Amino acid sequence: MKKIIVPVDFSEHSEYALQTAASIAKKQNSEIIVVHMLELSNAIITQKQSYAMEEAAFYLKLAEKKFQDFLNQEFLSDLTVTPIIKHYKIFSELNDLAKEEGADLIVMGSQGASGLKEIFIGSNTEKVVRNSSVPVLVTKGKAVVSDLKNAVFGCDFSDDDIVPYQNAKNLLKKLNCNLQLLHINTPYGKFKTTKEMKEKVAKFLTKANESELTFKDVAYVSDYTVENGILEYAHDQDIDLIVLATHGRKGLAHFFEGSISEDIANHSDIPVLTFKI
């Protein structure tokens, strides 16, 4: 893992994300790229009036000063940290930056169970997840500094989930984190009999080159909603990380309907890692 991007707004939750990234970077010998999205309109930046130019310069200098103070952290010692200031608060730009830098991971902070706010107002975290072609790790209200030991990948075992699962497994292998597959059976819409589940799981495992795994190696939960099933299982099994596949701009997670995936990210107090389908 060469580079990790951390978008920050200098809040305590962005500090948690930065501390999480630092913990990973020290184990992977990675560079951290810290990005602040400076909300300056195009009018302010391009206007020739002296007051507009002075205002833009003021905010840039203020951001630079905040960066100096924010990055003066003991946990960043012995790490290569590159600060970057973007002039627009367009969060899809993070994906462009990730591509330019060849980043392997984006780490973001959120408030956790009370919703994705505090560090990014509104649904900006979701915008990053939907636009990102690299994995996004969302920390939930505190820094992740201990080793991630057990992760669960919730999916519907469709062909679309194969590549995200393989990518998740490869990334988590670098972190020495075990990844388990989880099937949620609900009484609505996509309910499956045991026979149907076995057949679908068997096909998935074969296509994913997981011939050593069998039906019994996959976890199964029955619940009224996918969200409740994943969250209950994660807590019952002391899971350190929830992994989801995302469908880009069409919304989070191929097998989720409506806003269920957003609800998982919003309500989970466990870190969430997303991979784009």
Rank of each mutant, 00 (worst) to 15 (best):
M1C: 09
P7I: 13
V8M: 08
D9L: 07
F10A: 04
H13A: 08
S14Y: 07
Y16Q: 13
Q19I: 07
A22E: 14
S23L: 12
I24N: 04
K27T: 15
V35I: 15
E39I: 02
L40W: 07
L40H: 04
S41Y: 08
I44Q: 06
Q49H: 07
S50P: 04
S50Y: 06
E54F: 03
L60I: 14
K66H: 15
K66Q: 15
F67N: 10
D69M: 00
D69Q: 04
L79K: 02
V81K: 01
K86M: 12
K86R: 13
Y88F: 11
Y88C: 00
K89C: 09
I90T: 10
F91C: 03
L94M: 08
D96L: 01
K99P: 00
E100N: 08
G102P: 09
L105P: 05
V107I: 14
S110W: 01
E118C: 08
F120P: 07
I121W: 06
G122H: 05
V128P: 06
P135Y: 12
V136N: 05
L137K: 06
L137Y: 14
L137E: 10
V138Q: 05
S146G: 09
S146C: 02
D147I: 04
L148F: 15
N150D: 12
N150C: 01
A151F: 00
F153G: 09
G154H: 01
G154L: 03
F157Q: 06
I162E: 07
Q166N: 06
A168Q: 06
K169Y: 13
N170W: 08
L171R: 05
K173E: 15
N176V: 07
N176F: 07
N176Q: 15
C177F: 03
N178P: 01
Q180T: 11
K192Q: 13
T194A: 04
K195S: 11
A202K: 13
E212V: 04
E212H: 12
L213C: 01
F215K: 03
F215S: 01
D217H: 08
Y220N: 06
V221D: 09
V221G: 06
S222K: 13
S222A: 11
D223N: 13
Y224P: 00
T225G: 11
Q237C: 02
D238V: 00
D240M: 05
D240K: 04
I242V: 13
I242D: 05
V243S: 03
L244V: 09
A245P: 07
A245S: 15
T246M: 10
G251S: 05
G251N: 04
A253C: 14
E257Y: 10
G258V: 11
G258N: 12
I260L: 03
E262F: 04
I264N: 02
A265I: 15
S268I: 07
S268T: 12
D269V: 07
D269M: 02
I270E: 03
V272R: 09
L273D: 09
F275G: 08
K276G: 00
